[in-house]
Simulated assay, not measured.
Amino acid sequence: MSASDQQIPHRRTVVSYVQRGERMTTGQQRAWDRYWGEFGHDISELPEGPLDTTGWFGRAAPLVLEVGSGMGETTAQLAAARPEHDHLAVEVYKPGLAQLLARAENLGIDNLRLLRGDATVLLREHFTAETLSEVRVFFPDPWPKKRHHKRRLVQPDFVALVASRLRPGGVLHLATDWESYAEQMMEVCTAEPNLRNRWADFPGGWAPRPEWRPVTKFENRAHSEGREVHDLIFERV
């Protein structure tokens, strides 16, 4: 059975995020009021069926999805650096999305759209097979306590779902500064039959840190606290 024909089961009963406060700064509120209606959608309010990205962006271009864009520092810079790609950012934290809108305004970005809500719902219900050129999950919540590991986003069902939505040759790029989560990511992605590790011949299978991925304050903090950052780059076969 091809990935196009697979029905990805939905067994997920816990989510990988927590709802945080939504108080915004004056600048964030201004960006939200000015731009969300044009550049953002709540996933819960999307019409049934595939997301019309061609209509939303006004063109058909390779599509990159970033899951968990946080405050948007990396997302905005990467969208600006690759204007030939369309970029989607999915995040649950409203002030983070508002901050990303402000960053996009400052950089003059027009190839970025934002979605608020659960990335798993977005992938399962609003993308068809072999739609995405790349999916990025940078520094997801590590849920470091062992009893909370079930809340981690990168689990077999999620990775299988992502793989089914990637085009052949498309990329799943993960990064984390938590050793145990990196090992879990590697185990889960290696076990997914529709993915192969582009850096399997390198020590541990870890990818070299891409120079193009911006260094955020969170990554700098990880280094200052002695945590090594691991990148994983897998390709859809």
Results as ranks from 00 to 15, higher is better:
S2D: 14
Q7F: 11
I8V: 15
R11Q: 14
T13A: 07
G21R: 10
R23S: 13
T25Y: 08
T25M: 09
T26D: 11
G27K: 13
Q29A: 14
R30N: 09
A31L: 08
A31K: 09
W32M: 08
D33A: 10
F39Q: 14
G40V: 11
H41N: 12
D42W: 14
I43H: 03
S44W: 03
P47D: 07
G49I: 07
L51V: 06
L51T: 06
L51Q: 00
D52C: 02
T54E: 07
T54Q: 03
W56M: 13
L65S: 00
L65Q: 00
S69Q: 04
M71N: 14
M71H: 15
G72Q: 06
T74L: 10
T74H: 15
A76I: 02
Q77L: 12
L78G: 08
A81V: 11
P83Q: 05
H85R: 15
H85Y: 14
D86F: 01
Y93D: 05
K94S: 13
L97T: 06
R103E: 01
G108S: 10
R113D: 05
L115A: 06
G117M: 04
A119G: 04
V121R: 02
V121G: 00
L122M: 10
L123E: 04
H126C: 04
L132I: 01
V135F: 05
R136S: 04
P140C: 02
D141N: 12
K145G: 06
K145F: 02
K146I: 12
R147Y: 07
H148C: 07
H148V: 03
R151T: 02
R152W: 03
R152L: 04
Q155V: 03
D157N: 11
L161K: 09
V162D: 07
A163D: 00
P168S: 12
G169D: 12
G169T: 12
D177C: 11
W178N: 07
W178K: 10
W178E: 08
A182N: 05
Q184E: 12
M186V: 00
E187Y: 00
V188M: 00
T190C: 00
R196Y: 13
W199K: 02
A200L: 00
P203T: 06
G205N: 01
G205K: 04
P210K: 09
E211A: 11
P214Q: 05
P214N: 08
R221C: 03
H223E: 15
S224W: 09
E225S: 13
R227H: 15
E228H: 15
H230A: 12
I233D: 10
F234M: 08
E235C: 13
R236N: 11
